[in-house]
Design a protein around this nucleic acid. Structure first.
Lengths: 217, 217
DNA sequence: GTGCCGTTGGCAGCAAAGTGCCACGGGCTC
DNA sequence: GAGCCCGTGGCACTTTGCTGCCAACGGCAC
């Protein structure tokens, strides 16, 4: 079940945004879902009440300043937005528990014109399976607010090393020796890390670091 | 594209296990993929060389002792196995980058006989989208070995409360007061938590907790 | 050269965390 | 009842972590 053109896509999406019985879900690399997607999003928000929706994006969505405003506006309208560190495919997913719609996955050259192709599936097995995968991906993603408010910690090389030794569970003294710095300096680094992670205790800092997956990068 | 019966499923799966050009992927709730799935897995392992594969399961897969053996055997054959805390649907996913196969998603009564139905899709948009979702889910999942070796921490109600206050970043004294216990007991709880998390420092404990997503449950 | 600034490390003092010891009290079996 | 086990709380003490202060070092501009 494949079709082309944005008008038809909109015709399919519209009923999904209007039905209130089920939440619907969107997975995308960025806001370039289809030409005019941003305007459509704004319009539907202005017009309608709260649409129960979850949206999962790549960090790329935060690159553009105006896009961030759009996201904030979405969040204000009750949509739940999360960011995942895993690179998503360029395509877009719309799932509504019974139906799912996907855009053409590869948009190598954005200037390549012509109508996009969209794929629709209503096969229960496919939709349910995709939904379960989405749940798992969603669970591991970070809330937009946390992602933004945390001013995403910038871990430079030296704090990264501190983080690693800190993770190893040794005492400050041996950690400092390993890193070839004095105890005082090491503790300075730790204190700096606590500030950047906005943590009041070392436990909290570790928790944040773990939640943000700082140790896997 | 839907079909019934296990023989046909096997006929479709076989070429996937034999082609070496691409990794293939399996998402399932447990090993009850289809009748005789365990034996088939064993057979293919005995017979063939290493199959590059990733398998993502629910914790339910660890319930049965013999199933755990099967998993270990799989891991020994080079398959990468991870466990995700998010409940997966009962169905099973096979993805091979070009094709995906799903079992019937709802198996409410396992005794309900009759041939199962399977759904196959080779639509690039669907497969790529599902693959991206899988990547995200995979990324957040825990490796089987870690999951087993860590003797997965069992957080009872009271340690969970300790974990929460610990996460709030307050000092032990106020935390103990909040929980209505003495300082000594609170610290006992913290020490217990460190043991169950196999951590040498509070930071490490926080890190583990964060990595395992213990604060979102 | 002088002066400025940022980083480092030592010292000191304090706060917080970790732990061994013992005593108290509830629930249990016998 | 006595005896036992287990969880708790208090106390004392050690260790570790935290931070302010100051001196020393190196780079940089003038």
């Amino acid at each position: 079940m494949t079709f082309r053109g944005d008008l038809e896509l909109w015709a399919r999406l519209k009923p999904l945004t209007e039905s209130n019985d089920t939440e619907w879900v969107n997975v995308a690399h960025d806001l370039d879902t289809w030409p005019g997607a941003r305007d459509a999003a704004r319009l539907s928000m202005r017009r309608g009440g709260a649409v129960p929706a979850r949206k999962l994006y790549s960090p790329a969505v935060l690159a553009d300043e105006r896009d961030r405003d759009v996201l904030r506006e979405m969040a204000d309208h009750g949509m739940r937005i999360r960011i995942t560190a895993t690179p998503l495919s360029r395509g877009t997913f719309f799932i509504d528990r019974r139906t799912m719609i996907l855009t053409s996955p590869t948009t190598t050259s954005p200037a390549a014109q012509g109508p996009r192709t969209y794929t629709v599936s209503a096969t229960p097995a496919l939709v349910d399976g995709a939904y379960a995968l989405f749940e798992a991906a969603w669970e591991s993603a970070t809330d937009l607010a946390a992602y933004l408010s945390a001013e995403w910690p910038r871990i430079d090389a030296r704090t990264a090393r501190v983080l690693r030794t800190l993770s190893s569970g040794t005492t400050d003294e041996t950690a400092a020796r390993e890193l070839g710095m004095s105890l005082r300096t090491y503790r300075r680094r730790v204190a700096e890390l606590l500030v950047t992670l906005d943590a009041d205790s070392r436990f909290q800092a570790g928790l944040r670091a773990g939640e943000m997956g700082l140790t896997r990068g």
